[in-house]
Design a protein around this nucleic acid. Structure first.
Length: 264
DNA sequence: ATGGTGGGTAGCCCA
């Protein structure tokens, strides 16, 4: 059994207390973090090692973005893609060397895309679409059992958002973004593990804005975080779940952790 | 239609 987790942590240094709480509660073998918001030398590697996660691949930058994969299983860093070609740290790829040997685990933080869903007036929206197009070109070349997890910043299905109608023109749920993400999915034939285990139209959210007084009452969530796998690997996923209570922990991230257990 | 909150950094950017 191998359990993989993904969590947009929104500053790993600030949130080490809840990361520790999570690792003790769920004990995943591997945790993929996004938005670590620090450089590699600032990453709290010693604290992770003390918790048993001594195998680490960090792709960080100053202040913004940044991803890290921490593991109890030996791993080897294999790639750091810059799908915007602008130096932002949004991806790290590793290969598992112990349990789950041979699996390639891609940890990605797709750009949010700004506020206006029109690349002519909002360059960030165009950059988001271009990032996904370059990921698609890359996905066409994958020839090993792989998993890609992280904050995709797109909620593709109607039941992935609190109101499909009200979010059609909101960045993260526009038809253009969903089409672009679907082309990425089809380029490799990725299986959406989350939605294979929590079937639409069942509610499935992984993010709630900080700008909501009571996130539980309004429940204006979106499924921005994903765990996708090559089809043959996805068939070995025995369990998939969320830790929604983490949204209520002290000084929470606005995202919650997602987990998938594999029988390999 | 607007502003609401949170993080990092250094006088605003990003989500």
């Amino acid at each position: 059994m191998v359990t993989i987790a993904t969590w947009n942590i929104n500053s790993v240094r600030l949130r080490m207390p809840i990361v520790e709480r999570f690792l003790k509660a769920e004990a995943p073998d591997v945790l993929c973090l996004q938005e670590i918001k620090c450089q590699e030398f600032q990453f709290p590697a010693k604290a992770f090692a003390k918790l048993g996660y001594k195998h680490i691949a960090v792709h960080g930058q100053k202040g913004y973005h940044g991803v890290a994969t921490v593991s109890r299983i030996p791993l080897r860093e294999v790639s750091r893609h810059d799908w915007q070609d602008n130096g932002e740290a949004r991806h790290v790829g590793v290969e598992l060397l112990g349990a789950g040997q041979g699996m390639v685990l891609e940890n990605v933080y797709v750009p949010a895309g700004g506020d206006v869903p029109d690349r002519k007036v909002n360059a960030k929206f165009g950059q988001k679409l271009d990032f996904l197009d370059r990921m698609t070109r890359w996905a066409e070349t994958i020839d090993r059992p792989s998993m890609i997890v992280g904050d995709f910043n797109i909620a593709p299905l109607e039941s992935d958002v609190w109101s499909h109608k009200q979010l059609l023109k909101v960045v993260s749920h526009t038809p253009l973004e969903v089409e672009t993400l679907n082309r990425f999915r089809d380029a490799h034939g990725w299986s959406d593990i989350g939605r294979e285990h929590i079937l639409a139209p069942e509610r499935y959210f992984s993010w709630w804005s900080y700008r909501s007084k009571d996130w539980r009452v309004n429940d204006r969530g979106r499924r921005l975080d994903h765990m996708w796998a090559s089809p043959q690997l996805a068939k070995q996923a025995t369990r998939h779940w969320l830790l929604e209570e983490a949204r209520d922990w002290e000084k929470p991230s606005d995202h919650i952790p997602l987990m998938t257990q594999f029988s390999l």
